[in-house]
Design a protein around this nucleic acid. Structure first.
Lengths: 140, 140
DNA sequence: TGCTAATCAACAAGTCGTGCTAACTAACAG
DNA sequence: CTGTTAGTTAGCACGACTTGTTGATTAGCA
């Protein structure tokens, strides 16, 4: 994701207004590796800006997502999560605590076989599930 | 997935009754490579057994899923899909028509790097998105 | 045959996300 | 600085998907 300052510039270019709400969300996402949901982000935002609405958080996230500044990740665990890391990367999920980490996979072009004659792959999503070090430690 | 006959036996073992509805669903899933949703399966089932309820389809699918006889696949495209193929395989999805195919990946143990010290991976899900041969042909 | 699970219909609820309206606020251009 | 207009907010609703509940009926299986 771009820095909050760069995002401000991009929003202005696009004719979007730069409101304090949007700026707050930019800051909350900047460097955020927690893969928050809209709801989670809203809670944090509301601490710093009581009165901000969940609606606005959803909307700003959609805008950022449409602009390609955040990734929209759906792990099938209910809510969609947002990732300011827009590199070509993948995710590991702890099935116990639900924490999500970014991972970079040595993507030796994966070969696949099956009933997929002529299929043109545009993107690949890999999700590793398992147990994180914390949870493994606790349950041991 | 096991054959309908084997499933009948398994259900009996587990103390579940073998009803015509369940048997119908077993048959509809057997060898099914369409990755149907509960709803889709219900529609087909209803043709052969008018009066069957969507509720029953959902329930039977949950049972099968809990028993490990079908895979529960969530591609983030709305409804969950069910796959009677419970091999260790992955999926390709056409982003145009939504068709899903099973694929077997030459899973050279994927190496990943990132903030994942001590993470114990139990399973890996790979989803390839792109355009299927049909859609590529139509749009060309 | 009888116990009990399964099914069904109908309705509800829950989650996640979006649409709409109306009123107020404030960003930005001129 | 002012006016235009986008953005925000509250509130209510809906839509998709899935599960829960209830109460009556059906039917599997011992």
């Amino acid at each position: 994701m771009k820095t909050p300052e760069e995002l401000v510039a991009r929003f202005r270019e696009q004719g979007y207004k730069v409101t304090p709400q949007r700026q707050l969300i930019f800051r909350l996402l900047n460097g955020n590796t927690a893969h928050p949901t809209a709801e989670t982000l809203y809670e944090v935002a509301a601490e710093q800006m009581p009165g901000i609405s969940l609606r606005t958080v959803y909307q700003t996230l959609s805008e950022l997502s449409a602009m390609g500044e955040v990734q929209h990740i759906d792990l099938g665990s209910g809510a969609v999560r947002f990732d300011p890391n827009v590199d070509d990367h993948h995710h590991v999920v702890c099935s116990t605590c639900g924490v999500v980490h970014d991972v970079y996979v040595n993507q030796t072009p994966l070969r696949f076989e099956g009933d997929v004659e002529g299929f043109a792959v545009h993107s690949t999503r890999i999700v590793f599930s398992g147990e994180c070090a914390q949870c493994a430690h606790l349950s041991a």
